[in-house]
Design a protein around this nucleic acid. Structure first.
Length: 190
DNA sequence: GCGTCGATGGCA
DNA sequence: GCCATCGACGCG
């Protein structure tokens, strides 16, 4: 079942782990591609030094200040688009970065990383601001999913001082499609 | 299997 | 002058 906007209207630190095991549905020219989310990160507001909104309200971050359930897509390193889902409520800029997923239904693609995921699902800045209840791009539940969730520090934010240690990355440790094994230990690596 | 490095463009 | 990245390359 497609999630409605209320599903997204809560703190990113709650939404991010809950999105593990959920399914991205992407429709491209009448074809439907589905992928199971296995890695996310929470960006928890203006006070979070790793959150783009900590630098203030700008053209780029405008979407994050709006209502929950919209896509925040931006370009990084001049090369890759990053797909986020806006969380929380108006004027509280929180978002969840979707970092990795496993293709379903026998479709094969490498979605093990935020840049590879957007490339594989054809998500670009053209989707910035779209409401995620539309038929072309949305998230559905998988009631049968046996998800496991482990929290680790976020990737690629060494500049964020004390925030770089916060356990705001969430992964399904049993997945083979993670962007990195950082933060996983012992049994989780087998 | 590691570490290092360059590409590439929008943003402040 | 940075980056919420990726893949190529060199090592030995």
């Amino acid at each position: 079942m497609k999630f409605d906007l209320l599903f997204y209207a809560r703190p990113a630190i709650e939404l991010a782990p809950d999105l593990i095991g959920k399914i991205i549905v992407r429709r491209i020219r009448q074809k439907v591609f589905r992928a199971r989310i296995v890695e996310t990160e929470a960006y928890v507001g203006s006070h979070d030094l790793a959150c783009h909104a900590s630098k203030g309200r700008t053209n780029r971050t405008e979407v994050m200040f709006g209502p929950a359930g919209r896509a925040y897509v931006y370009l990084i390193y001049g090369v890759y688009d990053m797909f986020n889902i806006v969380a929380s409520e108006i004027d509280d800029p929180q978002a969840v970065l979707i970092r990795a997923a496993e293709p379903l239904d026998g479709w094969s693609a490498d979605l093990a990383g935020p840049g590879k995921l957007t490339r594989g699902l054809l998500i670009t800045r053209a989707q910035n601001g779209v409401i995620l209840t539309n038929d072309r791009l949305h998230i559905v539940d998988d009631p049968a999913d046996r998800r496991q969730v482990v929290a680790t520090p976020r990737i690629g934010i060494d500049y964020a001082r004390e925030w770089k240690h916060e356990l705001l990355r969430f992964v399904d440790p049993t997945s083979n499609a993670l962007s990195s094994k950082k933060g996983l230990t012992g049994a989780a690596l087998r």
